[in-house]
């Protein structure tokens, strides 16, 4: 019974016929995609919760993303999905040459997507709009907001305007600690109320004054300040939690990017097989399954694009 269908070398010994094998492979792939969707759903939930908790970060952050690039990428990926579908169709209809061409085009689409993504990442890198508190510098490259728990009580968290400062003798008397950090990091003693305001994000000093103060402190330190006023005008001042948006942005797009790379690897693999003439109307499971995966990658991007780039 097991080898009653020996006419097709691709039939596994435990299947009754090709049809059963093909439908099983497809069911398996759908299940795998279900888990992929769940995997990204987890990320989308993070997105939702963090956006709900930090609306201003998302409001601010999304302006810094390049919508044109995002849109171009969306089109590139959609087109590659189309060529993938055509490739599967070609494999089913015994068109070896067409299969190879379409698979190659799809692969190029993936490349194009990654290159554009790379340009975007690079731009973010040079502007200092990176993930996490330590890396996020705002568009002018000067780190000016946020706090690190371990240092929450000691670093220059939320410097007060000089006038208020002078009014507080306790803080002013701390000049000795300034010597510890020649880089301008003034260690300050904060009273409980200030600490709470830091820990719980309540009533931080107005960001406008805040930026101005930075400029005083760092004047001449580096060249970043030149564009600062312009950036603030264009996008407003970064809220204290702006880095969270970029954490989410990089987290989501990087994981999606990894999936694109894996997909490209798979496409390369079926391309090689296709060139060897492995696929025909009798056996095209691998092309079909890889195609499903590629559509999924595309679909996830369709969700990511509006969620990250097109927030209103």
């Amino acid at each position: 019974m097991s080898h009653g269908h020996g006419d097709n070398p691709y039939l596994g010994h435990h299947w009754d016929n090709m049809e059963q094998q093909f439908s099983s492979a497809k069911l398996g792939m759908w299940l795998f995609m279900a888990q992929e969707i769940l995997f990204f759903s987890g990320l989308f939930c993070f997105y939702a919760v963090l956006r709900f908790n930090n609306p201003e970060a998302f409001e601010y952050g999304h302006q810094l993303l390049d919508k044109i690039m995002g849109a171009v990428n969306t089109i590139v990926l959609l087109l590659s999905s189309l060529t993938m579908a055509l490739g599967v169709r070609a494999a089913q209809t015994n068109q070896k040459r067409a299969t190879c061409i379409f698979l190659a085009l799809t692969f190029l689409g993936g490349c194009g997507f990654m290159v554009i993504k790379g340009i975007e990442y690079n731009a973010k890198g040079t502007h200092g709009s990176l993930w996490g508190l330590a890396n996020f510098k705002g568009e002018d490259g000067v780190q000016k907001v946020g706090f690190d728990y371990g240092k929450a009580f000691s670093t220059d968290l939320a410097p007060e305007p000089p006038a208020e400062r002078a009014a507080k003798p306790e803080v002013a008397s701390d000049a000795e600690t300034a010597a510890i950090e020649p880089g301008g990091m003034v260690a300050e003693a904060l009273d409980q109320k200030e600490v709470r305001s830091i820990l719980f994000g309540e009533a931080l000093p107005p960001p406008g004054k805040h930026g101005g103060h930075e400029e005083d402190e760092h004047a001449g330190d580096d060249g970043h300040d030149h564009g600062h006023a312009g950036h603030v005008e264009q996008w407003g001042t970064p809220p204290p939690t702006a880095h969270i948006f970029f954490s989410v942005y990089f987290g989501l797009t990087a994981l999606h990017g990894i999936h694109v790379v894996v997909g490209m690897g798979l496409i390369a693999w079926v391309f090689v097989n296709a060139r060897r003439g492995k696929y025909s109307s009798k056996y095209f499971t691998q092309v079909e399954v890889v195609g499903l995966y590629w559509h999924l990658v595309d679909l996830i991007w369709i969700f990511l694009f509006p969620l990250l780039y097109l927030i209103s």
Binding site: G150, S154, E170, E176, I180, A187, A189, D191
Partner: peptide
């Protein structure tokens, strides 16, 4: 000592890597 109180994580003394001193609210 002043620095260790204010910026406990700036420099960690050898052999005390496990330590994890929080910042604090001491005035001068």
């Amino acid at each position: 000592i002043n620095e260790s109180i204010m910026l406990p994580k700036k420099r960690i003394a050898k052999g005390y890597e496990k330590g994890n001193m929080p910042g604090n609210t001491l005035n001068s």
